[in-house]
């Protein structure tokens, strides 16, 4: 029972961490970034490169985030900026970008499965059983990440500008906010979060050129169900992630794999605005 609860909490944390970058981009830019999965993969490979060169595994996360930020700013300039007025096309263009990134990774690293060293390995004795310590750390990471993002949006100048752009871009521009810069920074931030998330989940998984793909659809569903808000995303991760764990444990792991997608489609049919609105 305790293990089940821990599984639910850690799964929800992973989902929250992975989906955060996608949500920031969708929230501020009204843009669905289908390259999100590829960004996760890039993060995983960044972690692999860092540990393969003998650096401390703790460096994998900042390294992945920094690389992701640069990548995000470049991608925003080249691919995303011309498509602001065509949101459905932006989905396709970022999907194409994901294909390109996956192919570049194949060129550089081959198709084989790789591994990255974990900052902490082993288990912790909890309620009489051993539990993966990295999974437990992810709970803390998710909480800190949620608080930091909330602080960023509500306590900083950037956050104020970003919220102004979310609510009324034309008016924000009229008030002298450089909305193009806000968008570039946001996409960079979203990509950085995605890459860092990739680095954070690699200790539990292996690294391969398509590792991000399964996470893409689940993150997308969670973000829509969340109603694009940080508490909403936490709630959606807990509810849908919890459902996934329960179904996987008691019914079948294969059905568990589609729990989030199916539940999200049903929830959005009933509440099109997601959990945190109306």
């Amino acid at each position: 029972m305790a293990i089940l609860l821990l599984d639910i909490l850690t799964t929800a944390s992973m989902l929250f961490i992975v989906a955060a970058g996608l949500m920031i981009i969708l929230g501020v830019m009204k843009l669905i970034n289908f390259a999100h999965g590829a960004f996760l993969t890039v993060g995983g490979y960044a972690a692999h490169v860092v540990t393969a060169h003998g650096f401390s595994p703790w460096l994998t996360i900042p390294a992945a985030a920094a690389f992701g930020f640069v990548l995000g700013v470049v991608v925003e300039r080249v691919v995303v900026r011309p498509l602001y007025s065509r949101p459905l096309d932006a989905i396709l263009a970022t999907w194409g970008l994901g294909i390109i990134i996956a192919q570049v990774i194949v060129f550089a690293f081959g198709r084989e499965v790789q591994f990255a060293q974990s900052p902490i390995s082993g288990t912790v004795d909890l309620f009489g059983t051993g539990y993966s310590s990295w999974r437990l750390i992810l709970i803390a990471v998710a909480v800190v990440l949620g608080l930091l993002l909330t602080a960023l949006l509500y306590l900083t100048r950037f956050g104020l500008n970003a919220r102004a752009v979310i609510m009324n871009e034309n008016l924000a521009r009229g008030l002298g906010i450089d909305s193009i810069r806000v968008r570039a920074m946001t996409f960079g931030l979203g990509a950085a979060l995605a890459c860092a998330a990739g680095a954070l989940i690699t200790p539990l998984l292996s690294v391969d050129p398509n590792m991000g793909l399964p996470w893409l659809v689940n993150s997308f569903m969670l973000v829509l169900v969340s109603g694009i808000a940080i508490p909403g995303l936490a709630l959606a991760s807990l509810v849908l992630g919890g459902a996934q764990v329960l179904v996987s444990t008691f019914v079948s792991p294969i059905i568990g794999g589609i729990t989030i997608v199916v539940l999200a489609a049903v929830i959005l049919r009933i509440k099109p605005q997601g959990l945190s609105r109306g």
């Binding site: 691919v79 011309p82 498509l83 096309d89 396709l92 263009a93 194409g96 970008l97 294909i99 390109i100 192919q103 570049v104 060129f107």
Partner: peptide, 13 residues
């Protein structure tokens, strides 16, 4: 695949 990806993105944009 790389060429298809690049062409696809370029065509969409």
């Amino acid at each position: 695949n790389f060429i298809v990806g690049v062409t696809f993105v370029a065509v969409i944009i």
